[in-house]
Design a protein around this nucleic acid. Sequence first.
DNA 1: CGCTTAACGCACTAACTAGTTACTTCTTTA
DNA 2: TAAAGAAGTAACTAGTTAGTGCGTTAAGCG
Lengths: 217, 217
Amino acid sequence: MMTDQTEKPGRKPRIRDAEATKARILEAAKKEFAKNGLGGARVDDIAEKAKANKRMIYHYFESKEGLFQTVLEEAYLDIRSAEQKLNLEDLDPTTALERLVRFTWEYYLRNPEFLTLVNSENLHRAKHLKKSEIVKSSSRKLVGMVSDILERGVKAGVFRHGIDPVQLNITIAAVGYYYLTNRFTGSIIYERDLMAKEALEERIRFNIETIMHLVAA
Amino acid sequence: MMTDQTEKPGRKPRIRDAEATKARILEAAKKEFAKNGLGGARVDDIAEKAKANKRMIYHYFESKEGLFQTVLEEAYLDIRSAEQKLNLEDLDPTTALERLVRFTWEYYLRNPEFLTLVNSENLHRAKHLKKSEIVKSSSRKLVGMVSDILERGVKAGVFRHGIDPVQLNITIAAVGYYYLTNRFTGSIIYERDLMAKEALEERIRFNIETIMHLVAA
DNA sequence: CGCTTAACGCACTAACTAGTTACTTCTTTA
DNA sequence: TAAAGAAGTAACTAGTTAGTGCGTTAAGCG
């Protein structure tokens, strides 16, 4: 059936912008996947919230899983690129390490979707991330950064010798990640509001202490 | 329609055992929820794997969410009860703390469903756990245990003063939990098999070091 | 032994869900 | 300016899914 739209003066002509539509879909998808997981997210809801047609999702991303993979990859690239911008190599080792711990904490705090996306990906045994070569190479840089800080610290006599940069990296992530991803069950188990302003401040202080005691000479 | 079963000599009469059926359903549900999350798990699959009829799930647990809540509650009670059996109050503070760190790690390692169930519950903002009074009270005992170890350690001059037992508790959980729940993405990011025997041994050693340095006087 | 109660099972439904078909409409460029 | 191709849409399909209605069967008890 044909509708003669020139007859209706009130209708707005659709503005076409592939990149903008793609970006809206990705943003909506990130929120939905983070809120409900890969299995719980609904393609129809994502389309609606992106103010796009569902068909466009399949046009740009092939499938729901293809969309998830893109969302996940972008999330990893975002945190890795933010880490690069810290310029830790220009700071003395102690300051650099503290800054990384603080950054990691604040990134998780401001981007809680990242935590949920990673959890979702682990539920699926990382089958989407496996395919992403660029995420691997950007992660290598992060390990290199921490490795460099450790070496400089040992040379300066402020850090102890023999710490594995990968283990340290994991631990820096762990002390923030666990607290924040489990903030709901944690608030019940420990009977305090883990997301209260003072609680958050106390936690980052504690985390910095933990890491500093761990590396101290 | 009526089937005269006395005519068929080969058929085995169903053995009726409400408790056993309930237990089989719970066991199957734990596995399914852990594998696929609350949203991804299928009630039909749970029924099949429990060798029970789907109708029984609704008979005993009212709904899929009711079943999830029971599974989750049992999981928490199991770890809390295992912690109680450690008898940490009979050990000197340093040994007691190391034992708790090791126990937590090994529990997570042997019961990976626990990690996934907790993740799933946090995706749902802990709405099921909120209702469970018994989980709260058993968690209070855990914090009390750590609190006691810390106090004894300070008195004995081996631990430093002023450490918050809740923060310590969270950190002990964190360093194991993060590593294991993110073992799939972690193995890609850090380009090593995090679940290899030596990797696991290295990690528990590192975690004990982390906690010991943190509390050391 | 017969009766009640609780365990159990089949077959169904109403709502949902990922993905598709078959179009229309806008934009660019030869 | 016309044609081609890309962006966008609505309605549909085939398969799933949580939850139920209702009948059957075993076990315990007076």
